[in-house]
Design a protein around this nucleic acid. Sequence first.
RNA 1: GCGAAAGUGGCGGAACUGGCAGACGCGCCGGAUUUAGGAUCCGGUAGCCGAAAGGCUGUGGGGGUUCGAGUCCCCCCUUUCGCACCA
Length: 878
Amino acid sequence: MATRRCPPSARPFGAIGLRYSGSIVADYTPREIDRKWQRRWQESRAFEVTEDASKPKFYCLEMYAYPSGDAHMGHVRNYAIGDAVARLKRMQGANVLHPFGWDAFGMPAENAAIQRGVHPETWTRESIARMKGQLQRLGISYDWSREIATCDPEYYRWNQWLFTRMFERGLAYRRRATVNWCPNDATVLANEQVIDGTCWRCGATVTTRELHQWFLRITAYAQELLDGLDGLTDWPERVVTMQRNWVGRSEGVQARFPICDLQGRATERAIEVFTTRIDTICGATFVVLAPEHELVEQFAAESPEARTFRAQADRFRTQDRIARLSGEIEKEGFDTGRTAMNPFTGQAVPIWVANFVIGGYGTGAIMAVPAHDQRDFEFARKYDVPIKIVVQPPGDDPLTAETMTEAYTAPGVMVDSGEFTGLDSEVAWTRMAERAEARGIGQRDVQFRLKDWGISRQRYWGTPIPIVHCPACGLVPVPDEELPVVLPQVVEFTGRGDSPLAQNPEFVNVKCPACGGDAARETDTMDTFVDSSWYFYRFCDPHNGDLPFDPVKARYWAPVDFYSGGVEHAILHLIYSRFFCRVFRDLGMVEHDEPFARLLTQGMVLKDGAVMSKSKGNVVDPDDMIRRYGADALRLYVMFVAPPEKEVEWTDASLEGSFRFLARVWRLVEPLGRLLRDVPVGAPAAALAAAALQPAERQLWRKTHQTIQRVTEDLYPRVHLNTAISALMELVNELYSFSDHAAVWSPVRRGDEAVAKHPTRPEALIVLKEAIDALVRMLSIFAPHMAEELWEQIGYQEGLTAAAWPSLNADAAKAEEIIVPVQVNGKVRARITVPADSSERHLEQAALADPAVQAKLSGKSIQKVIVAKGKLVSVVVR
RNA sequence: GCGAAAGUGGCGGAACUGGCAGACGCGCCGGAUUUAGGAUCCGGUAGCCGAAAGGCUGUGGGGGUUCGAGUCCCCCCUUUCGCACCA
């Protein structure tokens, strides 16, 4: 045959089919089948939905895509998983919202503009078109009428609207903050444009700059975001943990250390420090300021050697930033020559400046207790600052400052702490906090690691921040009726200088909305995480021109019931979305507190142990695989190869295996189509009474219902897609065995030649139809194109998209007889076949009567017999 | 360093609450079919001993709880991921 070397999809499959000698089985030709059904679904608008109070809703969402131009295997896997859930829920009677859209703003589009002169919009639209085609060739059941792209003014308009609401409520504000700066290109760089401390374009060493930037006050919700995590029982534990650490709540005391003048007398000025170990305050032998701390400059000014002072502090400030990108840095510091008074001991302690104290956390200053904090310990040893022990470990072996080799951080007994001496340190914590408050030298405080969200980007391809700077009125939001503030089309992309919008006078020069005077537009655009923090609400009402979405519609669809995507979004995207959810709630637009009820983080698809990437040259192109094996085989493969959460290593051989399975189903079902068409659905109960069935028929009928049970249980909420598929494979194997049973089949002849086999008994046909019917329905959530085609072949007029999930007949699934292992002293010595509902007594008797068991019992005495009903009998002898 | 998760055949992986370890698939071996190869269908496939019946050993290593442990507890090893000076 000439087609020998062709890829599988082109091979002449099953010219000779199962059990058919000489008959013709139509080839499994996924390419045509895929196209046929994709067209039908589109024409019938099969997946478009509207609110319907008569049905339970189910909102199934996969993280929308950044339109890079090429869908990769990670996308395929994510969308295949989501689609299986969406199709399952639809068949189980839910009104399923399953939308898709594009995270269309962002740097790659702008980089393309800088490097190749393509307008970001053109680049983005082309990428969307390409990727959409790829997704459609996968046959995912999206409601495409709800498609959104965040770069549409109709979308980003609502970013601006929401920003304005937040500005009005003090949740959006402006302050100075540090950015990466390339001195050569005179431009701001995003973190990902800084490569090993240098500019991605010109290689110049990156410095920092202070700019006015916009922030969203996520910290206003810090406690709530933390508390809400307890309710996220259907999220992966590790994502919850990551978020908890990210919010990073710690309880402590903010204490005042009065600053001493140059003569060592306490003054009115004080250093505020935050500590979680107020119990160790008597051991605080020095105070450390972050290099960014405002007092550093004051001390420098007051210092006789102001210059060296500043130089040292500056060195830490710049060092900090670069070091943070590259890893560990050595603890360094210098003594300011100034002292502060320990408010508990009254002693003067030196004030240091050191690089290990962070300006942005707490008060930017710490009390250093070297005996009981490892970092302080290392620092004190290095610079020879005194170490004072105030907590001794329990037991008779007290520590001494001279001999200790590391800080003692565990609880213990208080020493050398005045009236608190002798107390348990954990008890002392509370007493000392109370005392600090009573004496006005401190108060209990809660600090969060979570910082406000800086959303300003000095970029073109993002949502313009809708603010006007008026010399007379200050910061004025653009009135709602003037939204959206649209990105100007004509802009030059040089990658140098100011942000592109700032270079466009038509954009910048406006009249103040408040006073009508000359004013300037804000030229920063928003972080694209703003877009993705609420897109799931927009899907509920994607064409609304009056509001981001209709609260009534959102009340019907939201929250998202099933959300799947990569772990890489475990923190930022998900915490920002949880934040926005609460903002919408406080605006009265949604009623729930959490936007995503169930989260599934799917594992990556690797090739040769690494993430697929163009630079590594290890990309497997989904389109290529679809061309060769069809969409169904590819989808089935990514779901069968491993549980959804796990990483998978791409293997061509396994994909072929999935293809073979589908072809095997095809060869089984397709030729039976004409035969089964006439068999009524919902077989007469009498015909299926177990007693009326031949053993082979009974076995198939049981397997059918056992499979329905297993698959249904595996699918949701467990989402064990791989084991569900393996159960379907078992059913197919059973169907093949069934066709081997001579008792129920006889050859159909044409002349002398056996053309096909035909069940000789009506019961056999009924059981067969029921099995195949259930198989095709269940298979349709994994391999929808082929399932539809087979569905049509076996005589159903209405498409599978309207079909119901098969219903379980629990009696049919039940086994009449079971095999129970018998253990003697922990080892399996026999297996007995007993009626499924055997009593414990009967099981024991049957087990002891078994000859193999008897043999092991002879000469021994039975100590105990344990019967696990329906599972096992365990005999203990001596 | 801290935290979390995971270590099961040649490979991907099953085993829900402690109850037949290795479902299902890949690969490999054998048989049928075929002029032949491919495809297809059937069977076998943890290791060791044995002609077989059967036996012994096995879920990273060591200990423990239990009639019974891949599963629970303690110690150790390895891998992956997350956080890495957050006071």
